[in-house]
Computed example of a mutant assay.
Amino acid sequence: MEPITIVLFVVGAVIALFVFLYLFPVNLWFTAWLSGAPVSLINLVLMRLRKVPPALVVNAMITSTKAGLKITSNDIETHFLAGGHVNNVIKALISADKANIPLDFKLATAIDLAGRDVFDAVQLSVNPRVINTPPVAAVAKDGIQLVAKARVTVRANINQLVGGAGEETILARVGEGIVTTIGSAVNHKEVLENPDRISKVVLGKGLDSGTAFEILSIDIADIDIGENIGAKLQADQAEADLKVANARAEERRAMAVALEQEMRAKAQDARAKVIEAEAEIPKAMADAFKSGNMGIMDYYRMQNMKADTEMRESISKPKGDKK
């Protein structure tokens, strides 16, 4: 046999060995068997063909078996093919089992596939989290604004993680409860004297309904006095009323000016008519002379009477009155 043939034979044998060990992961099969979580070699080969990492499944099987969990390789493989995080689910199940939290494999995979971190949820059930609310401004009945900050202690509600609302809903509901409680107070002093009143009222509303959390406590961290909203609103209303009153007064003044101008026009018109009528007197007297209805003596008597009347009027006027 030629040397090149021997080399090719050896290379082919090595390649065949690697292909065999890849398709038939004997070491994983042996490790699973020694760990008490046996997986058949055929199943490991089928996992390769289905593009499922056999090492991931075997390690998950060994970990769950050592923790006393009963999970089959088919369950793990199915969850991996569905796009789940196998190691995260296994860790969550082990943590829940040690903490006596009821959590089965089906619910854990559902939570994982829903996009939530199931391991973090289990940790949150064991170690509650404190959520700080942003400053919430509300106005008491006396018009004084109060700005409150609260600390909400929550823990995960495992059964509500699928489809339950998140932290944003909790914060929104707590803020709404704070506004309602402060708004129902007769004056701001009541709230400052008893801040726990807010906690009791808000906590009694069942704000965690339909959420992925269970509210353990609501503590008011700080309350500050804001603006006097009532006085500001009254000042704004008074300013608005003043503008309305000024507008109405200006309207009445404009109407009065217009009426005065109208009366002046009427007076001018009346004077014009009087002057026009006086202009007709000489014509009437001329017609009377022509028609013989009035003689020269009548005219003199009329002039005398007119002069006498003017004299009497001048005598009756007080001194200094030149009109």
Rank of each mutant, 00 (worst) to 15 (best):
K273E: 15
Q123M: 15
V86P: 00
K266S: 05
I111W: 05
A307M: 11
Q234E: 15
R248M: 13
P38R: 14
D117L: 09
L81Q: 09
R197F: 10
K323F: 11
R271E: 14
S40W: 04
D142I: 00
L146M: 06
A235T: 14
G115H: 04
N74P: 00
I275V: 15
S125A: 15
I223P: 01
A96W: 07
G163Q: 12
N293F: 06
S291C: 03
D287K: 12
K51N: 09
V201S: 07
L34M: 11
A96D: 02
A108G: 06
V7Y: 08
A108R: 02
A249I: 09
D298T: 07
A185C: 06
A267L: 15
L23V: 06
A96K: 04
L233Q: 15
A277I: 11
P53N: 12
N100R: 07
I182E: 02
I15F: 06
G143Y: 03
Y299G: 04
P134V: 10
L44Q: 04
G175I: 02
F9R: 11
P195H: 12
M294Q: 10
V147Q: 01
A231R: 12
V147M: 08
V89F: 03
I4Q: 09
E280I: 11
V274T: 07
E313A: 12
P195C: 06
A110S: 13
N132K: 15
I76R: 06
L93T: 02
M47D: 07
I178F: 01
L46G: 04
A148W: 07
G164Y: 02
E250Y: 03
I178E: 05
E77F: 00
G143L: 07
N100Y: 09
E313L: 14
S73V: 00
L69Y: 01
Y300E: 13
G143H: 05
I6L: 13
A55K: 10
T153E: 11
L23T: 08
L146N: 07
A138M: 03
E227I: 09
A249V: 08
N100P: 00
M297W: 09
I111R: 03
T109W: 09
F213L: 03
E167W: 02
A82E: 15
P128F: 10
T31V: 13
Y22T: 03
G226T: 02
G84T: 09
A288C: 04
A212F: 03
N194C: 00
W33F: 11
K200Y: 13
P282Q: 09
I94W: 04
Q303Y: 01
K283G: 14
A16D: 00
E2I: 02
K319T: 10
